[in-house]
Amino acid sequence: MAEMIATRQAYGDALVELGEKNKDIVVLDADLSKSTTTAKFGKKFPDRFFNMGVAEANMVNTAAGLATCGKIAFVSSFSIFATGRTWEQIRNTVCYSGLNVKIVATHSGVSVGPDGASHQCIEDISLMKTIPTMTVIEPCDAFETRKSILAAVDYKGPVYIRLGRAAVPVITKKEDPYTIGKANILRTGKDVAIVACGALVANALTASDILSKDGIEATVVNMHTIKPIDQDVVVSVAKQGNAVVTAEQHVLDGGLGSAVASVLSRNYPVPVEMIGIDNRFGQSGEPDILFKEYHLQPEDIVLAARRAIGRKRK
């Protein structure tokens, strides 16, 4: 049984680790520091922590100002507030100027659970991906979250990192390589490729196990960086299996699936099936029930893989 750790918990620990090494790290939060776990940094380094209250747009502009003074600013809130309320400030103040601001949003996707549609941000990847100069990352587990936070410090310019509320399985290892913009291939197979991000990577691995029992071998790709997407890996795995499935906890419009389909349409067209949220809002419920309702389970990925394989040219 894999260890279960919330990616937001790993974020708070990584911030403290960074704060001890780099005096230019500053952290801003919008009155949700206990939930986002930035409170860990605030307790350890109160002079470099700023609770901006329920004023997210002001928080982003303040972070931009600190970045112009040489600071590396981490900005956090729930993803619905960190991207929805602040889109104009992120676009015009942070990204237009290419400032070194890292927006790390928690409580993304329907796995937020009982808080319901108003707090389940399922559009944030699309919102951030469309802004020029923005880098978009969704780590799959706690180890990868730590690596993404540490990597973001040395990565010049704006970065958006998408984290969840609920605990997720730890499926990577501390020693696994991690580079922003470079996907990790977790398994290889000749019949179909499953490209997933975030919490859906674990489900993709389970789906691969189910398919293998029926003699179908699937490649599983952990596409932790959605922008810039690793085009070389996308094309390579498509050529290997000639069928692709994408899996994400996000609306299908503008998310990982759209990015993969765009790469393949230009470079190597093959059948693509997408697992994600199809033109619906979230709703209140436990995460496992919502994953079933929105067809985000391993069994749904298995069915999508069979459909993609069935669409291969005869």
Rank of each mutant, 00 (worst) to 15 (best):
G189P: 05
V26P: 02
A199C: 05
D154T: 13
E286G: 08
T62H: 00
E293M: 00
H224I: 00
K156C: 00
V233L: 03
K21A: 14
A304R: 10
E56F: 09
T179A: 15
K21R: 15
L256Q: 09
G116E: 10
A166C: 07
R187Y: 05
V237M: 11
G12F: 12
A117T: 01
M59W: 03
P158R: 03
K190D: 15
I216D: 07
L186F: 13
K182E: 14
W87H: 09
C197P: 00
D214P: 00
V94T: 09
T7A: 07
D191A: 08
A218I: 03
K40Q: 15
H107A: 08
I301D: 14
E20T: 11
K23S: 15
S148E: 01
G98W: 07
D47P: 00
Y155P: 00
S79P: 00
L264F: 05
D29R: 11
L163W: 08
E20I: 06
E123P: 01
M4Q: 13
F50V: 05
K173A: 14
I210F: 13
D232S: 14
D209P: 06
K71H: 03
G255Y: 06
T106E: 02
V270K: 09
A57H: 07
G84P: 01
R91I: 00
V272W: 03
T225R: 10
V159H: 04
A82W: 01
V302L: 12
V260Y: 12
E175G: 04
E144Y: 08
I72F: 00
Q120H: 01
V270F: 10
V251P: 00
S108K: 09
H295R: 14
G157Q: 02
P169G: 04
R165E: 12
S265A: 15
V220P: 07
L296K: 09
T219L: 02
L99I: 07
G84C: 02
V16Q: 03
A151Y: 05
H295M: 14
V170F: 04
W87E: 06
I161D: 04
D209E: 15
A151I: 03
F78C: 01
G181P: 10
D141R: 05
Y155L: 11
Q9V: 08
A196E: 08
R280W: 01
P158T: 07
K239Q: 15
T135S: 12
G254E: 09
R146A: 12
I226A: 02
R280S: 04
I185E: 10
P177L: 07
P177H: 10
K23W: 02
K40Y: 13
V153A: 11
N100M: 08
D230H: 09
F49Y: 15
A305R: 11
M59F: 04
T172G: 01
G215A: 11
I226F: 03
N100I: 07
Q297V: 12
V170L: 14
K174I: 06
T179R: 14
P158Y: 06
V237F: 12
R85T: 01
A55D: 02
G241K: 12
F49T: 04
V112F: 09
V94W: 06
T68I: 10
G164A: 11
C197Q: 13
D13N: 13
V168H: 01
I275Q: 04
E3M: 13
Y294G: 04
L256I: 14
